[in-house]
């Protein structure tokens, strides 16, 4: 049973359609990421859930009730903005207390909950600091505490970590995940960082130009990308042009001199996508020549020129001797490590 449900939601600004046909159902306690390049409509979708924008078409439901009919101030959602949007004239504690004040929580209980919320995000002792006197990471934590203290039905995070440096971002990712697991709040995170989306979420919604490309677990979207866009966007990938040969029995999938039994339901020209770390060097397979070999500590990175165009191969550094630059090699992979899509034209 869906907790939060978006049903064919669309948003237009004038003639420009920014979000189109967006359908998603989120389970209670689930951690969902909206992942996509800049300008693909992630923030717009989040703002429609929050109520700052009205959808042009479609419905948004929370526990079966129409959310769009409820004023944003009454939706009871927790939101962390990209800029944090803390109240600069209030201390950390006053910022966190604001939502409770609006709910007329009695003073004693309020103080207790504010203290607990700040402690949860690791800011005990910072109650009387003003935001301008805090670091980016600390401000981010105040914003998170402010959103969580009202016990929101859904927590909406709009690129909350993008202003932090790499190390702090990683720390906050772990912390965010732990906090979310502990209190079990249904969470939607907007990000354009695929690592962030993969390491935090139960499911990822990959978006491009206002449309959903794929919804799936991090593993699914990485290993079974539904489109060329998804496979390109989620990490490095090799796309080889192949064909399905139906003149032989059983039908064969052919890419250069690499061949395997063809998957069902496809014919003619196809694109074969394989992740670089899934390709090995063997005795038979796609013919290639190693152009450069880069040592990167725990792995080797090979750039090759294959029969089907350039290819990248990543091999674990397991102590075995690796081919050298200029060597002729054969690239192989297991059929279950590739995804095959119909290729337009050709």
């Amino acid at each position: 049973m869906a907790y939060l449900e978006l049903d064919r939601v669309a948003k237009q600004f004038g003639a420009q359609t920014v979000v189109d046909d967006f359908s998603l159902s989120v389970g209670k306690g689930e951690f969902i990421s909206f992942l996509g390049p800049s300008g693909c409509g992630k923030t717009t979708t989040l703002q429609m859930i929050a109520g700052f924008l009205d959808p042009t078409r479609g419905a948004i439901r929370l526990e079966g009730k129409d959310l769009t009919a409820i004023h944003p101030a009454k939706r009871g959602l927790g939101i962390v903005f990209q800029s944090y949007a803390l109240f600069p004239h209030m201390t950390a504690a006053e910022n966190v207390a604001f939502g409770l004040e609006m709910r007329n929580v009695p003073r004693n209980e309020r103080a207790e909950r504010v203290r607990a919320a700040l402690a949860m995000v690791g800011l005990a002792g910072f109650e009387d600091r003003h935001p301008r006197r805090m670091s980016g990471g600390q401000q981010q934590r105040v914003a998170l505490a402010r959103a969580l203290v009202i016990k929101p039905s859904v927590l909406l995070l709009d690129e909350p970590l993008s202003n932090l440096d790499a190390k702090l971002r990683e720390e906050m990712q772990i912390e965010l995940r732990q906090i979310q697991r502990t209190i079990g709040t249904t969470t939607i995170l907007v990000t354009h960082d695929q690592n962030e989306a993969m390491s935090l979420s139960d499911r990822i919604v990959v978006m491009s130009q206002g449309k959903i490309e794929q919804i799936g677990t991090p593993q699914e979207t990485y290993e079974r990308p539904a489109s060329a866009f998804v496979s390109q966007f989620l990490g490095k990938t090799n796309d080889f042009a192949g064909t399905i040969d139906r003149t032989v029995a059983p039908t064969q999938l052919v890419a250069g001199s690499w061949r395997a039994p063809a998957p069902a339901g496809l014919g003619g020209p196809v694109t074969v996508s394989v992740r670089p770390e899934r390709i090995g060097f063997g005795d038979a397979g796609l013919g290639a020549k190693i152009i450069t070999r880069i040592f990167q500590g725990n792995h080797w990175l090979f750039q090759c020129e294959s029969e089907c165009g350039p290819a990248i191969v990543i091999r674990q550094n397991d102590g075995q001797t690796q081919p050298a630059e200029g060597d002729a090699v054969r690239l192989t992979w297991r059929p279950e490590d590739m995804s095959v899509r119909a290729r337009a034209g050709a």
Binding site: A50, A73, I79, M102
Partner: peptide, 22 residues
Amino acid sequence: DPQIENAAMSLGAGPVTIIRRI
């Protein structure tokens, strides 16, 4: 902050409170 009013609104503040307090 361009989002400051939205932030206050999401915490349950009405228009008058937003102007007066934020």
